[in-house]
Design a protein around this nucleic acid. Sequence first.
DNA 1: TCAATACTTAGCAACATGGCTAACCAACTT
DNA 2: AAGTTGGTTAGCCATGTTGCTAAGTATTGA
Lengths: 113, 113
Amino acid sequence: MANQLDSFFGAMADPTRRAVIERLASGPASVSELHKPHKMALPTFMRHLKVLEDTGIVRSVKKGRVRTCHIEAAPLIEAQGWLAWQREIWENRLDGLAALAHEISQKDQNDGT
Amino acid sequence: MANQLDSFFGAMADPTRRAVIERLASGPASVSELHKPHKMALPTFMRHLKVLEDTGIVRSVKKGRVRTCHIEAAPLIEAQGWLAWQREIWENRLDGLAALAHEISQKDQNDGT
DNA sequence: TCAATACTTAGCAACATGGCTAACCAACTT
DNA sequence: AAGTTGGTTAGCCATGTTGCTAAGTATTGA
């Protein structure tokens, strides 16, 4: 995928992967620990984990035979920022339209809000 | 896809579709107007538009032969809320458990993709 | 050393996605 | 009426994604 947002949103489009994020938000966990609540086969689950890691949402360290995963905030913050940005533009525009509408229909309303 | 977030994030994972959102954030537009800056064939583009509409991110009305599209804020706000929620949990945890972060970074990094 | 644990790799099948062209309908315009 | 514009439908193909199983590697524990 082209940029950071592509892969981030792509990663978050899957419920299994969002569940992993929700779990990791409250603290690091091993692969098998993360896998436990999910019905799918381990290799399948591992691939979801890989998607999250490739996207930079999750990092992991292997110690002995256990790989411990933890969350990385940056991509999450970036996506949130993009959404906030869009929303801001949209809301400013609405403000503008509201003002315009008010201007057009300038009646004798003199309410103070 | 299962829920609202699945389809929302799925929709936002494509740069063409995000570009459409960015365009629509600053005001409604017709299909061909939206299509103009994109190189792909119109039917291909229309399918992106359909994804956005199916997800509820975009609404449209057809008048004569022109279909005018506009943005719908609700799904955007919901997704932003989910991200904010995750981030909050994550940040609260960091506030309380700075020592844990230290412990993680201290581990022997003998793999790390 | 042998077995269990915790991943990891490889490869396959089914379906989804994103691109295309061709051909079509509907509504203006001339 | 005929042509142009704006959108739509249908179908094809290449690639990507998500699930599986089988089998392998590397630690750890007995």
